[in-house]
């Protein structure tokens, strides 16, 4: 109970404070960042920047034909755990109550049992993602601490949430406290590592798309 008190109280307050400050720090420093003007001539007939950005965001939702065969499972797996995480985080009643308490927002929830099932699929999918990363030499080569740590802080809340729900290993309040603490760790880490893609994914993708379109790389990419 004391651990739960700590988790629901000071730990949560601290991590949410860091999370908000960190995310806004990242976004604002990005918005006001020095940007070098691209003075090269634009590709003739280039789409307006915004369109190029949007089309790249869409296109990157699915692998190019060249890579499709080799990476299809990884892509699908990526979708599985992203969608799984989304459902578990935003459609389990206790989570909605948590968000509602902080923000006043509320929406419909899914039956707990269904969310439990989805969380197990998500957990397996996350493990598969790690195994694939670690067993593929080129991927291992380009993986940094950030990649593994991001995985860990995502994995822990899912695992502790499932364990808490199933009451495995310890008393519920201890497991719930560990679950909340793991979420605190996640919140603290989000702004400072690759998990920031939660906020930036479409911004960075759009930027890349616009940039590539301007540099006439579109022709290469169209050859898919």
């Amino acid at each position: 109970m004391e651990l739960l008190e700590f988790a629901r109280g000071p730990a949560l307050m601290f991590s949410i404070t860091v999370f908000i400050a960190g995310v806004l720090f990242r976004i604002f420093s990005l918005l006001f960042m020095w940007r070098t003007k691209d003075t090269s001539a634009a590709h003739p007939g280039q789409k307006p920047e915004i369109m190029a950005a949007l089309s790249d965001i869409l296109r990157r939702m699915w692998p190019l034909a060249t890579y499709r065969q080799r990476s299809l499972f990884q892509w699908i797996n990526g979708y599985v755990f992203h969608i799984g995480l989304f459902i578990v985080v935003f459609f389990l009643l206790p989570h909605i109550l948590f968000i509602n308490d902080l923000t006043g927002l509320s929406w419909g929830h899914l039956p707990n049992n269904l969310v439990y099932a989805i969380s197990i699929v998500t957990l397996i999918s996350l493990i598969a993602a790690l195994i694939m990363r670690a067993s593929n030499p080129p991927q291992r080569l380009i993986s940094t601490f950030d990649d593994y740590f991001s995985w860990l802080v995502t994995f822990l809340p899912v695992l502790s949430g499932i364990v808490a729900t199933m009451h495995i290993g310890a008393r519920y309040e201890t497991l719930l406290a560990l679950h909340i603490l793991s979420v605190c760790l996640l919140l603290i880490y989000i702004p400072f590592g690759k998990l920031m893609h939660f906020f930036l994914v479409f911004i960075t993708r759009g930027q890349t798309g616009a940039h590539i379109a301007h540099r006439r790389r579109t022709t290469v990419l169209k050859g898919e």
């Binding site: 949560l12 949410i16 860091v18 206790p94 308490d101």
Partner: peptide, 15 residues
């Protein structure tokens, strides 16, 4: 499942 009442105490300042 909710935090304590003061969870967002420093949120505005942090933002």
């Amino acid at each position: 499942a909710t935090g304590k009442d003061d969870t967002l105490k420093y949120a505005a300042g942090a933002a």
